[in-house]
Design a protein around this nucleic acid. Sequence first.
DNA 1: GCGCTTAGTTGAACGTGTTCAAATTCAGCT
DNA 2: AGCTGAATTTGAACACGTTCAACTAAGCGC
Lengths: 244, 244
Amino acid sequence: MRKTQVSQKSNKTGKGEQTRALILETALEMFRERGYDETTMRAIAQKAGVSLGNAYYYFRSKEYLIQAFYQRLHDSQIEAALPALEHDKTLKARLLTVMRTKIDTMKPYHQFAGVLFKTAANPKSPLNPFGDESDPVRTQSIQLFEKVLDGATARIPKDLRAELPYLLWVYSMGIVLFWIHDSSRSHRRTYRLIDHTVELLDKLIHLASNPFMRPLRKQALRLVDELRDAAESLDDDEGPGDAA
Amino acid sequence: MRKTQVSQKSNKTGKGEQTRALILETALEMFRERGYDETTMRAIAQKAGVSLGNAYYYFRSKEYLIQAFYQRLHDSQIEAALPALEHDKTLKARLLTVMRTKIDTMKPYHQFAGVLFKTAANPKSPLNPFGDESDPVRTQSIQLFEKVLDGATARIPKDLRAELPYLLWVYSMGIVLFWIHDSSRSHRRTYRLIDHTVELLDKLIHLASNPFMRPLRKQALRLVDELRDAAESLDDDEGPGDAA
DNA sequence: GCGCTTAGTTGAACGTGTTCAAATTCAGCT
DNA sequence: AGCTGAATTTGAACACGTTCAACTAAGCGC
């Protein structure tokens, strides 16, 4: 039931994979040129030299085509960020680097990225970043922030340190959301926002690391946990622990 | 160009208004019973005893039907919150009251509220709470938080006080977003989240009001301003001040 | 009454994403 | 070579949101 797409058995040339890739490439090219809404499934199928139904055989819906793009985008972001991190030692510098390269990588796709997040807010969409379907990308993303923190010199209390990668990921999603709506020249506004927020975050993290702040910090972290729990049981009809 | 719907001149019986209301009532009833996606424009038109095209004469698109619902929901929320505020004097209590009544009011519509915010994230949608089309509702909402603050005893520095209504509105949007995804029994999770976040907010506001925190507060408020500016020029092709 | 304009109304037609039963290909087996 | 079942492919059909040219009704100036 689960693995709708493609099997592994008996693939000399991997015919299925080839077709799948062909459709995906064609779709992404057309999305880039004409935008998402303006590109019809029929047009994709036709340009790929494939029947309409066949496109649906490999991609359950039009949205799943975006998800593939999403994954690809993310891969290149990781690729760009890791080397750039070598130079930076402070938390602030490292955060700046990651966030800037993130936007750099996405830049070419700005015009049609809007659609990406249009449906992303829909809990039923495969693009919902909190949903099951986005798990691989999400995990990788959070790991990147792990690395950001690991290489930094800042001393951060354990409780906060544990949640910080997740929190920074959420923060980065907010920035991307802003970027999508940002139509200023060269996305200056987004870069400026990154500068300001990173500086603020840096200060906040240090402030929160102050022993004086321990009670408030604890309380805030409890809240974060709660939110995360809730996000994880999005599709359940009932929260855990109460059989109706 | 702007006022697509209905004119005032020469309306003895207000025929147009009547039809408009009829369609809206029918639509909302069907949304409540069957959900948004499951209710087709054809079905609405048929049940209202009106042609399909006529429905589109009064509502530019299906989404505009939701916007009407949105406005109505908001009205009753204000109605419920204001009297309830009489008793409360502390900031914390007042915030709690407003947030709880907000959820109380929305409760009956939980099942189909998901659609409301599915498109709300789309900057092109009339439902986008930051967009022009939502201006009346937004303004009213922010004013409600004005009242919350006005009646509270807490001493808050002017700079923060000025931004707080807007910030609390954004906060309330976050809570609603959570509520939509919350499928726990009686929305317990949302109420719990409100309790926790209000307590945290209360502490944060007092912390931020400490003279010691002034520089950080100033910086954070500058950021808020920046974000708000950006939100206001959503539809522009260029940010203000740079002619391309 | 008569033409003119405008509001209101109609339903056929379009383009879309999606589904599905049937056709086709293909690899492995006898 | 022929058979079999699974993987792949097809295109017609469906249901929907939306558009639009045409129609009707109603008021207004003459």
